[in-house]
Write a protein that binds this DNA or RNA. Structure first.
Lengths: 112, 112
DNA sequence: TGATTAGTTTGATTATTATCGAACAATGAG
DNA sequence: CTCATTGTTCGATAATAATCAAACTAATCA
C-alpha cells in the first residue's frame, strides 16, 4: 500500500450510556475476568491501563475481547497512545446511568 | 409406597446472602427472563407469585429452572402453599448485601 | 527499511447456559 | 382411590459465550 494513501487509524466506538440496556451492563459485569480488569483500572494510579498491563491467565486475543465487551457496555473508554491503547473507567457517566453498580464492583474485594 | 411412610416434603434451599458472591448475583440478573420474573413479583399486589402465574414464552421446565437460579442467588424466597409454590423477593436482605442492585432492576422499565 | 511492540481479527474448539418435552412427584379435590 | 394441578427433574439439543493460536494491522524505533 502506498505511503500517501489514507490509512485507517485505529478508532474505538463508545456508546452513549443512555442507549445501553441494563441487561447489557449486567452481562458485561457477569464475568470474573472483566470484573478483574475493571478493578485493575480502578486500582491503578493513573486511572488508565493498557491491555497488556493486566496479568490474567488468558491469551491476548481473549483479553482484547473482554476489553471490547466492556467498551460496548459503556463501562470503559479507550484511547490510542502511541502503540498502546489506554483504557479508563467511564465512572461518572456510568454512575449517572446505573447508580450504585460500579460501587459494588469496587467494594467487593473478596471472591469473583 | 405406604401411606404412613415418611414422605419427602418439597423443600427449598435459601442461601445466606453473605455467602453469595457478587458474580453469582450479577449472573442471575443477566437474563431477560429472570429480570421479567423479578419485575412481575415486584409488581404483584401481594408480593408473591407462583411459577405458572407469570406468562413467558417458555416451557414450565425452563421457568422452573429460572426460579431455581434466582433462588440460588438469594434473590427470591419460595414457600409451598398447597399445590403451588409462592415466591417473593428477598428485598431487604438483598439490599443490605448489594445496595442499589434491586433498585436498578425495579426502575428500568424499558428494554431488557 | 526492517524489527519490535501492542492490539485486533479470524477460524475453530470448548464450555456454559438456555430450552424443550416427557416422565416424575406431591398436594388437594371429587 | 383417581384425577387434576403445580412444579421438579432428566436427557437431549440448540444457542451463547469464552478461549486459543495464528495471521494481520498500526505505530514506533533503530
Amino acid at each position: 500500500m502506498s505511503h500517501s494513501e489514507a490509512m485507517a487509524v485505529r478508532e474505538y466506538i463508545h456508546p452513549d450510556l443512555e442507549g445501553v440496556p441494563l441487561n447489557t451492563a449486567l452481562q458485561a459485569l457477569a464475568d470474573p475476568a472483566r470484573i478483574a480488569i475493571l478493578r485493575a483500572i480502578l486500582a491503578s494510579g493513573t486511572g488508565e491501563i493498557a491491555c497488556n498491563e493486566i496479568s490474567l491467565p488468558l491469551s491476548k486475543g481473549t483479553v482484547s475481547h473482554h476489553f471490547e465487551t466492556l467498551r460496548g457496555a459503556g463501562l470503559i473508554r479507550t484511547r490510542v497512545e502511541g502503540t498502546k491503547c489506554l483504557s479508563s473507567v467511564r465512572r461518572q457517566e456510568f454512575d449517572e446511568r446505573f447508580p450504585g453498580l460500579m460501587r459494588l464492583v469496587e467494594s467487593e474485594n473478596s471472591q469473583a
